[in-house]
Write a protein that binds this DNA or RNA. Sequence first.
DNA 1: GGCTATTTACCGACCGGTCGGTCAGTACTA
DNA 2: TAGTACTGACCGACCGGTCGGTAAATAGCC
Lengths: 203, 203
Amino acid sequence: MFMEPSSPSDMRSHILNEAARLFVIRGYDGISMREIAASCHISKPGLYYYFVDKEDLFLAILESSLEELTALISEATSQPGGTPQKLGFLIHAIFTRLPMERRALIRLAAQEMNKLSPQKRESFSSRYHATFIDGIADILRSGIQKKELRSVDPEMATWAFLGMMYPFFSATGSPRFDETAVVHFLLDTFLNGLSPQTGEQRE
Amino acid sequence: MFMEPSSPSDMRSHILNEAARLFVIRGYDGISMREIAASCHISKPGLYYYFVDKEDLFLAILESSLEELTALISEATSQPGGTPQKLGFLIHAIFTRLPMERRALIRLAAQEMNKLSPQKRESFSSRYHATFIDGIADILRSGIQKKELRSVDPEMATWAFLGMMYPFFSATGSPRFDETAVVHFLLDTFLNGLSPQTGEQRE
DNA sequence: GGCTATTTACCGACCGGTCGGTCAGTACTA
DNA sequence: TAGTACTGACCGACCGGTCGGTAAATAGCC
């Protein structure tokens, strides 16, 4: 009775999945609660039984994505080996452990966060930065400290790192590339660049 | 009498500017024609005097941004020097010749193109790819041919190149960095990567 | 120059439709 | 019989877009 839902009424998670899929395709303003309801084979008030409003539903999706990412980053951070290995692990994990839909969610969070009401946005975005952005920046920072990375602004590098990946997170748009090739290309480019190598390089 | 309007009724371009600013901040679905009208100190029907519908106004903004970009790319392509110089010119031109609002438009086009109706989207996106994406891919391709760049998939590299820049195109969100530093960082990272250099490197 | 006809550049009021959200039920369990 | 998991009907606000109208400038004619 006072235990929290241990089996979270699979309808709730079904809604979460379906709504995430739709938000990714059309954006926050692009789909209506009616469409989400129809896509879940439920009535619109049925949606409001599980979520207090549209924002609440959207936020629940963003939160779960952030949680997932945070777990991946902390796993990458505690990975044995040097910074290149940690970064390689992270890219590899994102592309192989997350289905495309969830990868697209990473982009969605970054792009549509501002659709939230001011207080919720502030709250989410500060957690988003503290765990996700700073988590990656910390890996980069420690790499710089250990001379495994050149001395650059870690936060700037984090945005570039993320930005490089985003085009390959698209549910629709952008072209389809072989994912193993993308994983390798991203890490290689981020670490070694596109200029021909003059000396021996590490990866 | 039969000359076309040489001074394009500065109201039209005022609307274009104002609407672009608003679309960038809130997205295509995020602002209404009423808000655009109010922001231009004009009535809603006044808007429809200049543009047939919302999509037409939006498309006019995207087209002008694409035109601007295309000009920059062709200028970069015909730049003297090697591929690194062409790429350097392009990044530099984007960051110094385009005010932030117009840079944000580049991102807007990529992100919100899909809000267009199917035929318009198809038409715009094919021109977008043919001139903008392929334009950059061609620079990369010729660089690879001339051994000035490592042998990678030029289209994949184009998306990564663009993706790296996008986080720094934000009108609001994302942090503010020193633009000269960003320009240098982006080119340097794209060409040389973040691993410490072992041999001498070219830029 | 004076007079009319037409065009330009808008505006207030309003349309049908959709939005997010609510409320009063109700079928089904425990 | 008390709660859980919903539903159909509905609300006010707002959406993109259109209607009929109009003041001011411009063009054509004498």
